[in-house]
């Protein structure tokens, strides 16, 4: 039971920043795959439909990713 509780609690405690990073990675992959399939750049709604992730979450994730990349650059310079 302790395990289950911890699992539930950990799950509830996922920070937005972590989950957004995962979303951003998925978005990047979907964008590449869809571009190949369709022979043009996919739109936001097409990416949203293919991943079943809302457009709002994608918009925020893209920004979160830029910031993380930026931080990474600063730290590893």
């Amino acid at each position: 039971i302790g395990e289950i509780k911890r699992f539930l609690r950990d799950d509830g405690m996922i920070k937005v920043s972590r989950s957004m990073k995962q979303t951003a990675a998925k978005v990047k992959m979907a964008k590449e795959n869809l571009s190949k399939e369709m022979g043009r750049e996919p739109t936001l709604s097409e990416i949203s439909a293919s991943l079943d992730i809302s457009q709002e979450d994608i918009v925020i994730a893209l920004e979160a990713n830029v910031q993380l990349e930026y931080l990474y650059d600063v730290i590893h310079k």
């Binding site: 509830g12 920070k15 937005v16 920043s17 709002e56 918009v59 925020i60 920004e63």
Partner: peptide
């Protein structure tokens, strides 16, 4: 309505909330 949600969510993101809080 959905636009307002994103704007508030982006603002709150500064406080690094959990998914539930957001």
């Amino acid at each position: 309505e959905s636009f307002a949600r994103v704007v508030v969510a982006a603002f709150v993101a500064q406080l690094d909330p959990t998914l539930e809080e957001l």
